[in-house]
Amino acid sequence: MNIYLYIFVMAVTTYLVRALPLTLLKKPIRSRFVRSFLHYVPTACLTAMTFPAILYATDHVVSGAAGLAVGVLLAFKKQSLIIVAAASCAAVFITEQMIALL
């Protein structure tokens, strides 16, 4: 399928999600369920996208797991976004190098 069609649909959908509530809905959402649902979407979505996908993002499951472990540990210690992301990459790189040496 045409790559530009994908990109176009992706951009338009993303924009409409942002633009419609900002322009059309000026009243607050009443439904407590809908509000609560939207509150939990980011966490659920990011988690589902990260695991177990991160394990298969590299050549070896071990290095993906190392990246995950380092990331979770640093994030738990409330390190900044860049530190966590960079350390995860470094863990993957080092682990892959070690595997190559074995």
């Binding site: 988690t47 990260t50 991160i54 993002a57 979770v72 994030a75 409330k78 990459c89 892959e96």
Partner: peptide, 18 residues
């Protein structure tokens, strides 16, 4: 390959503290 994990790292950094 290592850089490919960066976005996952960012997601982890957002989710875990919450």
């Amino acid at each position: 390959m290592a850089l490919g994990v960066m976005l996952y790292g960012m997601f982890i950094a957002i989710v875990v503290p919450q």
